[in-house]
Nucleic acid binder design. Structure first.
Lengths: 165, 165
DNA sequence: TATTGTTATACTCTATAACTATA
DNA sequence: TATAGTTATAGAGTATAACAATA
């Protein structure tokens, strides 16, 4: 525990409340930044009747035509049971289709419909614009730096988990 | 939509599934990095019978003795109704106490017990060690940079919301 | 036996509204 | 009337286990 402890402040009534202890963790700062990034993206996406999660699934399906639900789960690091619901939703919206695979009748080949591809185009445009606005305080170099640092954290975490397992 | 579209891949069967479309968003990369940071912190904290959220509340309460539940909510950017449950949990564990305030009998003054302060010391130590390990791939300069960029994003988002409201 | 998709359950976090007791 | 705390409810995300169909 740091020795910057305040004494027993019996009258903290309306003193400003600080979070310096928590600011020592990068994770805390990332959570606080991410909350804003997420709600910013959510706002952009819900204009089109989707949420961040369903939009992400649509991104992956458009990019990887004929992938299976298991592959979708892996790509998004979600459970297969969760993928079922996301695919259900996108299918009901007419944005993707589930297609039986003759070679392996257990799995589906997921494909976006023309409507799905068209909608994704609009979503992408809106998302990029929204993120550019939100991150307008960062230079291009800073954004590249940030992306690189985040990737490095993710890669190292994955490697560490593999080594541990 | 980028023109890097793949053709109709009728046999995507076991091709690697990519997420390049999503990697264009800093938010996506941040989410992926944060998932690991969060579970790393969770693992450190649950050794002591807490979760990330309750641990955060304990941090704030130890740092700001006699704060109210409303102040706690503000500090953590959570709803007051959520703070009730976190405080309930910490109180049941004997880590903090709710104390009536004579000047305003509506509110409580939250204070950590000696047990709460002692436990937080151990939690902090473990959290710092865990985060250092997870972020061992980053130099000290990179960590400082990352923290600064995250703060900048948060501050700008808050300012933008204020300006918009 | 193992895998794909599915259903069901439970837990956490979030968001909202309504209520009480105080002010 | 406004605020502090509380209760209740609903939605979203996550984690887990079990099951049917297929491999």
């Amino acid at each position: 525990m740091p020795d910057s402890f305040k004494g027993d402040n019996t009258d903290a009534g309306d003193l400003p409340v600080t979070d310096a202890f928590l600011r020592r963790y990068i994770g805390y700062r990332m959570k606080r930044a991410y909350v804003h990034i997420h709600s910013n993206a959510q706002a952009a996406i819900e204009t089109f009747g989707l949420r961040v999660t369903t939009s992400s699934a649509l991104h992956i399906i458009v990019e990887n035509p004929n992938l299976s639900q298991s592959q979708l789960s892996l790509a998004l690091s979600i459970e297969r049971s969760r993928a079922v619901l996301l695919v259900d939703e996108l299918e009901k919206l007419g944005l993707i289709t589930r297609n039986r695979v003759p070679q392996d009748r257990r799995s589906y080949a997921l494909r976006a419909t023309p409507a799905g591809e068209a909608l994704l185009e609009k979503v992408v445009e809106s998302l990029i614009r929204h993120e550019e606005t939100l991150l307008a305080g960062l230079t291009a170099a800073e954004k590249t730096q940030l992306a690189g640092l985040l990737d490095k954290i993710e890669r190292r975490a994955i490697d560490a988990r593999k080594a541990g397992a």
